[in-house]
Simulated assay, not measured.
Amino acid sequence: MAKILLAVSSHDTLGDTGERTGYSVSEAAHPYNVFTAAGHEVDFVSVKGGEPPAVVFDGEEDDPEVVGFLADDTVKAKLAATRPASEVRSEDYAAIFYVGGHGAMWDFPASRDLERIALDIYARGGVVSAVCHGPAALTGMTLPDGSPFLEGKRVTSFSNEEEDTLGLVDVMPFLLEDRMRERGAIHTKAPVYQAHTESCDRVVTGQNPASAAPVARLVVEALEAAPVAPGH
């Protein structure tokens, strides 16, 4: 059994639209269930700590996994008091999973504490994973030699076309697909809202909400292939 860290956004404002944002509940619920079903322990972390802003997208209200996740007493207790990234010991975890939701676009890239956790996990042979807008966290990461973490890696994320379908291209602080390419990534994508994943050198990414569980299953496979011992 390994310990896996689910990172969620603390950002609750969708640009200047006046609308609320945060982390995507479905993109946390589906991976959480995959990880726990495989026998792994899951903790939550956010940039600021405390209860993170949650978003349930249209059509997901009746998703049994979303309903169950929000009703689970263990999950509720953990989410009510997420630890801030600054207080998390990276040595305790074999993998980190960055949950999507538009809030991630604002606070994930600038969080040096989240970067520290991910880079430490990666350096110990662990897995860094993200889905939808979660890969925004990877765009700010730099390896010890100064090169972008994403350079040369095959990855995916919420696509420009998908952002356009929501009418949010001009609301986002940047376009995630473009930023990942700028950081040297080999970015791939499927047609809008079709599940699509990439796994490259212990970096596992998914394109959209439909990709959340598939990414989590790839993380489980990666951990089974090369178990990561906790740090000391």
Rank of each mutant, 00 (worst) to 15 (best):
M1C: 04
A2R: 14
L5S: 06
A7G: 12
H11D: 15
D12W: 01
G15L: 03
G18D: 08
G18N: 06
R20E: 08
V25E: 07
S26P: 00
V34K: 13
V34I: 11
F35V: 04
F35S: 10
A38W: 02
V42H: 15
V42R: 07
V42L: 12
D43Q: 00
D43C: 01
P52I: 00
E60G: 12
E61R: 03
D63H: 10
L70P: 13
T74N: 13
V75D: 02
K76Y: 00
A77P: 09
R83W: 08
S86V: 08
S86C: 07
R89P: 01
S90F: 13
E91F: 03
D92N: 09
A94Y: 11
I96Q: 06
G100V: 03
G101F: 13
A104D: 03
A104I: 12
W106A: 00
W106L: 04
S111Q: 13
E115G: 14
A118V: 07
I121C: 02
I121Y: 02
I121F: 06
Y122Q: 08
A123F: 04
S129N: 07
A130D: 12
C132Q: 11
H133T: 02
G134W: 02
A136P: 07
A137F: 07
T139W: 00
T139A: 14
G140A: 01
P144E: 08
S147P: 10
S147R: 11
E151Y: 06
G152Q: 09
V155N: 03
V155G: 02
S157E: 07
S157C: 15
N160K: 05
N160H: 06
G167D: 13
L168M: 06
V169F: 00
L176N: 02
R179V: 15
M180R: 09
R181L: 04
I186D: 15
T188R: 05
T197Q: 09
E198P: 10
D201M: 15
R202D: 10
A210G: 10
A213H: 05
P214L: 09
R217M: 08
V220N: 05
A226G: 04
A226H: 05
V228Q: 10
